[in-house]
Amino acid sequence: MNTPEPFAGEVVHSPVRHHILSVLVENKSGVLARIAGLFARRGFNIYSLAVAPSERHARFSRITIVVDAESAPLEQVMGQLDKLVNVVDIWDIAPRDAVERELLLATIATDVSNRTSLLDILGRAGASIIDVDPGAVTVMLAGTPASCDEFERALEDYSSVELHRTGRLAVPRLGQELTNPERGSR
């Protein structure tokens, strides 16, 4: 299989065939390890993963996992995930049915010579400056994964860039029916 190894340091933010799993879990210690361990031992590839307390209740957290749908059949990934006792609900969101966003933060060394061109890139990408000192700026972009990819490429011309991305969050497009292993749809 030609899918890139997710942990080998290769930068692939938009896998060709990915699926987004929105997983509601109990907010207990070790739950993230259970999920990561399951993916590792079953050979399922994770492209990105984002975790935060959920909207429902302090008892639960929501984990948004972007999985490589070529590393294993999605049915198998969801079936195994569903067996984890701390996993309360799973929604599979196909990328075409999803609104996906990601946050990118980057610190870029600047001087008089490149400041203008940088401002130009920021303006075109819709990124904003959130911190400044005489030798550097920190910028942020909240956007689609593709726009983050594009912005990242645009920053390649700058000599010193430290860049962080959150991995994507996703919600279904309004009006979409979702697949849920337990109850069919939401």
Binding site: P73, E75, Q76, G79, Q80, D82, P181
Partner: peptide, 8 residues
């Protein structure tokens, strides 16, 4: 009884 066995 285990859904994950189906089609594995």
């Amino acid at each position: 009884i285990d859904r994950a066995e189906l089609g594995k």
